[in-house]
Design a protein around this nucleic acid. Structure first.
Lengths: 237, 237
DNA sequence: CCTCTGTCGATTGTCGACATTCTGACCGAG
DNA sequence: CTCGGTCAGAATGTCGACAATCGACAGAGG
């Protein structure tokens, strides 16, 4: 397979993953990219015919997405893209702070501070370069890698799983907001002090800076009342 | 339902939830209670015939459990109960600490300290009563409610979801260990100072005590090498 | 003796059809 | 006009059957 002399088969490489996985990936991409908007109905028959498959794998894909929280399945009533309220956004960023500060404390306990700081510094530079060119998509992409690197350094698979979840939600939030932060330079600049603190092994300062950084991001997302106000669960329940 | 004069229909109360949900619950119960042991194969046909249903809802149930991390599904090869290694146990307790300390900080920010402390104190008393009677199952049950109450007070649905996950994993770990802690009285006693700190609104002290409490629990679980050593992902990959 | 290949049984993947449930429109009584 | 009841239409829930894939094993060939 690693034979560089036989690339002619690469084009006919077929996808051996189960259909449910391919469908789940496609639907997830549509949701997280904002193409499928929150509340939008997902009709099994439609999805099945769109992909040219039967409903069985579609249903299995929906179970996968439902448990990831991307889709809500109501028995006999149908499925729809999970709605996003203001409260959801607040909760995402609150949890994000908890996970990232935990990761920092943990990676410092593991003595990986210096090594991680090196990796992060590279990403910081990259981010600043992209920012200087006004290449926002690449900035957010690198930002994503920055935080993934941080989380991965904690070497905890459960944490990594939770982060995959949070990361997706953030991507959806940013996509729905569909407007670039004019002051993203500020956000980019925020990363450097964090790396400094990690390098210095100062857990207290690093967590403090991280919390502030995340809080800033959350404020930016919530500033212009874009997300639906919280649906009041009144006394009816 | 709440009419006490018509209990005669309770026995014929049928379950209107989809089969996948009922099956998923049954399988989850079997796994978390330790009845189905880690690594044990789950054959769709067997499960289907055991419940007297077709394979379709069983497969959907497996997708649900797979995304909760209870079951591993390998395409065309089958499903099995997720294996539990020593590292998994360590990770669970590490994350647990992060989630609980976050919850404490959060509920204090929300100003719910006094109210929550009251609820927790009741549970502490209950726990001590059960402990005095040597009723370990009830002790662990109340302990569970203690921590659920703590988490719920943070009023964050994502956190609550993660806790449901962690709580299940802990239950499985405890069940597999299947041996009561002789020094559980110590564990029970650990709760009171935490409540005191919450009542006093002292976040730093509360998180410190909580971390220590969880660390103690983790040590107890890991003390006797019951869980499989970590499967070394050698250079083969 | 080793390696490769073809076959076999078991299990999962997928499909199309039928059963059940929900929703909303229609309609007649009060 | 409002309130219930009825009824189709559409969507989901479930089923049984068939196809595809995997691992093991036996046998040919070197």
């Amino acid at each position: 397979m690693s034979d560089p002399a036989a690339p002619s088969f690469a084009s006919v490489q077929i996808d051996h993953r189960p259909l449910r996985q391919q469908i789940a990936d496609q639907l997830e991409e549509a949701i997280l990219s904002g193409e499928s908007r929150p509340g939008e109905a997902i009709v099994e028959t439609d999805v099945a015919s769109r992909f040219g498959v039967s409903r069985a794998p579609v249903r299995e894909a929906l179970q996968i997405l439902a448990n990831r929280g991307l889709v809500v399945v109501e028995p006999y009533r149908g499925s729809h893209v999970r709605k996003l309220e203001r409260r959801d956004v607040e909760e995402v960023y609150a949890i994000r702070t908890a996970l990232e500060t935990f990761a920092v404390r943990r990676l410092l306990e593991l003595g990986s501070g210096l090594s991680v700081a090196n990796d992060l510094r590279v990403l910081c530079d990259e981010m600043e370069t992209h920012a200087a060119h006004g290449d926002w998509p690449r900035v957010t992409g690198t930002d994503d890698r920055f935080h993934v690197t941080l989380i991965a350094a904690a070497d905890n698979r459960i944490l990594a799983g939770y982060w995959t979840d949070i990361r997706g939600r953030i991507r959806q939030i940013v996509a729905l907001r569909n407007r670039w932060n004019e002051d993203i330079r500020q956000i980019v600049a925020n990363h450097v002090p964090i790396v400094d603190a990690v390098e210095a092994g100062d857990a207290a300062r690093a967590t403090e800076l991280l919390s502030a950084h995340v809080a800033t991001s959350a404020d930016l997302m919530l500033r212009d009342d874009l997300f639906a106000p919280d649906a009041e669960k009144t006394a009816a329940n």
